[in-house]
Each structure stands twice: as structure tokens, then as C-alpha cells.
Amino acid sequence: MTPATSVTPVTPVTPVTPVTRVAAIDCGTNTIRLLVADLEHDPHGTPRLTQVHRDSRIVRLGLGVDRTGRLDPAALARTLEAVSEYAEACAGLGVDLASGHGRFVATSATRDADNREDFVDGVRALTGLEPEVVSGQEEARLSFAGSLLGAQDRAPVPGPGLVVDLGGGSTELILGDQAPLSAVSLDTGSVRVTERHLAHGVTPRAEDAARAEVRALLAHGAESVDLGRATALVGLAGTITTVTAHALGLERFDPEALNGAEISTEAALASCEAIVHSTPAERESWGYLLPGRRDVIAAGALVWSEIITCVVQATASGPHPVTTTVTSLNDILDGIALSVGERI
């Protein structure tokens, strides 16, 4: 008689994707930021980032660049000091920047500076990385890619959304769904508008001139990006998080409250108006507003208010009028980190 054979069922094993630690550095007109994260892919191939370390410093690399066309020596020194500390942080967290596991992206201020090579040479010497002075279109692509990480946790919208990355020297408008459909980079932002129009305060004449300039740029941008197609408005970066924090009545910078926060366009515009006409004492009392952003936040809020107004008007008669803004803390820095994985 043949003995019975016991068969043990085989449990399917979910493939384990390797985890790669990567570093991303984003150097803009006002701020330099570092993200160290563990990058992996889920079973469907969707990339995931687990934050290990994040840092942000206001160095104002773009100080005076709009007027002089050159990087200020003191601003350059401040920025390179931060770069040196970031290189040390990466080494301490196990990221060899020179091995291809890091990417350094510089944007508007460096694009506009005649002496950008001084900055590039300094970064290369400190990190072993070749810093990339990216175009406005690449900046837009990276910002959109980063914003998609936050979109994974948001309710889907019935059509393409408009992602706005409002920086110090440039502002990117990107229309897209799972990928950009169209994008434009505009030479406007919190530092540029401050230096051009609001350096001596927000007077009626200065405010009118600033708004006129921003509206003209938006009209030009609308030739490339059809704002009327937007079914959602998603904002990235420091100005927009500040406006949202003000609208929510926060006492301090609270990532959990801010990331994915949805507020009405009316509330956003009211906060923009309050910030544009705020006093130094009011700005100092806002715990969510860093000291290095206090002197440029009025200009940033002015730009954001013009964008909101333009989008609301462009979508008002369509099937999906935009009535809210969404704030995302996932932005170009996350997009840079994801792009490292694409290169490894």
C-alpha cells in the first residue's frame, strides 16, 4: 500500500524591490534644500520615497541677480557653506554623492547669472557632483513629478490639474494628469518681484506695477498652457504653504496640516490680500513664516493671488470650475530624488 503524501501549499511571495538611498539638492533663488530618502518600488512598479533627512535654508543666492546679472559674492559664500554642510550630512547618512546616488539641481538665479561657473566649480569641489543648471522646462517636469507623490493620497480629479511651483525667481505652470501635457516657466517670483517693485514697501503705485507685470506674464504663459482646461489647482513651495498656513490659522509650520490641505479660492485670496498688506510686526508674529522669507512674502502672495484669479476666471464658464486650491509639500525636491533612481 502506497503511503499518503503530504503536500504543503506554496504561498506566493511578493517580490522585494531593492531599497536605494538617494540624495537630492535643490538650489533656488531664495532657498537651498536637501532631501535624503530611501527609494523603492511597490509590486506595481510605482516609486516610493521614505524620507530619511530633509533640510531647508534661506541663503538668497539670487540676491540682486535680476538687476546685475551676477551672483553676489556674499550670497555665493553663504550658499557654498550650506553645500559643504549638506555634503557632510550625506556622507554621514551613507550617500556617496559622487557615485551617482545624488543629484544637484540649480534653477532660476543660477540660470540668469553670468558668473554661474563660480558656483558650479564650488559645488563640484565640495560634493563631487556635477551641478545641473536646469532649464525652466526641466524644472517644471521635476516639480510635476514630485507633486504626483502627493497626488497618490488625494481624490482623483475629472481632468488635468494645474501644478504651480512658485519660487523666488521663476514660477512654473504645469498642466497634466499622470504626465505633463504642457508647461511654461515665467520669470516672476517672490524675490524678483520684491526687487523690481516692492523693495521700498507695498505702496499703491508699486503694487499696481507689480500686478500689471505679473498679469502680462500670465497672459503670455496662457498661450502655452491652457488654463481653462484645469480641473484642480495645486500649489508648491514656500509662498503657497505660507498663504495656506495663514488661511488655516496655524500657529506654526505643521506639515501634517499643510500637506494636501484644500481651501477655497476665496479663503486663499483673502489670505493673500492680508499678507500683501501686512505689517512687519504681523509677519514677525507668524510662527510658520521663516525670518528669511518675511521681506519677500508680500510679493510671493501677490503673484499667487494673480494666478488664482486668472485660473478662476479661465475655468468659470467650463464644466469644472476651479473653486479650491490644494497645497502639496511634495515638490521639485522629491522630483529630483525620483530622477536619481531613473539614472541608477
Score class of each variant (00 low, 15 high):
A98W: 06
F144R: 04
E172W: 06
T46A: 14
A37S: 12
G102H: 04
E306W: 03
G122F: 02
V296R: 03
V133C: 05
I297H: 02
T110V: 15
G238P: 07
E130L: 11
V52E: 06
V164S: 05
S271M: 02
E172T: 10
V13P: 01
E273I: 09
L39I: 02
S278D: 06
P158E: 11
V10N: 05
D112H: 09
I25M: 14
A337L: 01
T79W: 01
T20C: 00
A106Y: 02
S135M: 05
L289G: 07
P321D: 12
E85A: 11
A316T: 08
D208L: 12
A209M: 13
S224A: 15
A212I: 02
T239P: 04
R294W: 07
V303N: 05
L162S: 04
L289V: 11
D112L: 04
I308P: 00
L333I: 12
L198V: 12
A299P: 08
G201R: 09
L236H: 03
W286T: 08
G146V: 07
I308D: 00
V311M: 12
G168C: 11
A216V: 13
T325S: 12
A4K: 09
E256W: 06
S147C: 14
V276Q: 03
W286F: 13
G341L: 00
I308Y: 00
R229Y: 02
A298C: 14
Y288F: 15
P291W: 09
R111V: 13
F104V: 11
E342R: 00
L181Q: 15
D55H: 14
A316P: 00
S185Q: 02
E284G: 05
D254E: 15
E266I: 13
R21F: 04
T327C: 14
V16C: 08
I58Q: 07
S182H: 06
L236G: 03
F144H: 11
P180H: 11
R211T: 06
L258F: 10
D121M: 09
D121G: 04
L71N: 09
G176S: 09
G136K: 07
A298H: 10
S264N: 05
L39A: 04
R229M: 13
M1G: 15
H44W: 02
H246M: 07
E139F: 02
H320Y: 13
L35T: 06
S305L: 01
A106L: 11
A219D: 14
G159R: 07
S170A: 07
I240S: 10
G122L: 06
D26M: 11
Q137E: 13
H320S: 10
R60P: 06
G249S: 13
A145Q: 10
L269I: 02
T20A: 01
R154Y: 00
T327Q: 15
I240Q: 09
G292E: 04
T244H: 02
D66V: 15
M1N: 13
I263C: 12
